[in-house]
Design a protein around this nucleic acid. Sequence first.
DNA 1: TAGAATAGTTTCATATAGCAACCTAAAATT
DNA 2: AATTTTAGGTTGCTATATGAAACTATTCTA
Lengths: 168, 168
Amino acid sequence: MGTLREPLDKVVACGLPQALEVMGERWSFLILRAAFNGLCHFEEYLSALGIARNILSNRLSKLVENGILKREPCPEDRRKVEYRLTEKGLDLLPALLALKQWGEKYTLTELSNPVVVDSQDWLPIGPITIRAHDGRELSYRDLRWQDRSRLGQNADEERAKEKEKAEA
Amino acid sequence: MGTLREPLDKVVACGLPQALEVMGERWSFLILRAAFNGLCHFEEYLSALGIARNILSNRLSKLVENGILKREPCPEDRRKVEYRLTEKGLDLLPALLALKQWGEKYTLTELSNPVVVDSQDWLPIGPITIRAHDGRELSYRDLRWQDRSRLGQNADEERAKEKEKAEA
DNA sequence: TAGAATAGTTTCATATAGCAACCTAAAATT
DNA sequence: AATTTTAGGTTGCTATATGAAACTATTCTA
């Protein structure tokens, strides 16, 4: 196919580039992790992460701008500001945990600490997995990239096409 | 390459900084997505992503170095090289999809296309979620960060502590 | 009222990332 | 044999990121 192809992120409508726009910068995910760990003040992030002040300032601003953190004056001490997760920020937890678990599985020699546990039974959570609409666990082998326009079509046609392709 | 750079991984024992060390760079996740989409040749990535040659070269090398892609000469055309996902790379799919879904939910105006579907019924996959060891779906409210040393302890003690805290 | 703490901002220097353009080497095609 | 294709190096330049240190402006505390 000799046709000049447009960049993937312009032809394909995908949330990934957008997510990376916000969260792809160097310290963003580590700040997010710290926020999930309960940190909320500027100086807390500063000493926990070992990040430069101006960079932290810049990142916090961007995270607030993008609605991932909200910035509120601290009621007890009005010099302080609280950076807390919004719903949008909290919704990044699956992505964060998936990354964390991957890192643990492949690149961590020592066991991670602390561990994320279920408050019901205080046992570690399970691995983040891909599931069908009905909850069946799926592997990457079970997945296809389907054009949205044919989402309504019945499955039989698609299966036939798969079969045909496999035989060719 | 992080010689002068402050290491991101000395804070706590967590897989996240390690994961970001490998996947946190600017084009890594987009290359990964392209690989999941079936691209495998240098020039394919180049035109699909609109990335500079040297940067692509650098990123591919790093991804290979880190065991996320494997580099193999193409049997049909031995000028060509195939960059294909390893198991380790395939295992990044939950993280990739979690990010993608988050991006779709919050920052995408138009509907995404193509859609990831289950090959069984050709319906879109469900959202990536957090689950307990037994498969119960959990929200961030159900999670605690527990020190590894007390993982063996029985749950009652922990529940009592929670209650106590809530009453204080 | 005089410090000290908090959350920044500003300045300056360096490091890294990014890109375009050109070059190489090997293999395929003609 | 000459040309084209593919992967990927190198060079030179610019833009952005990073970090340390100094500086502000509030607000709290003694």
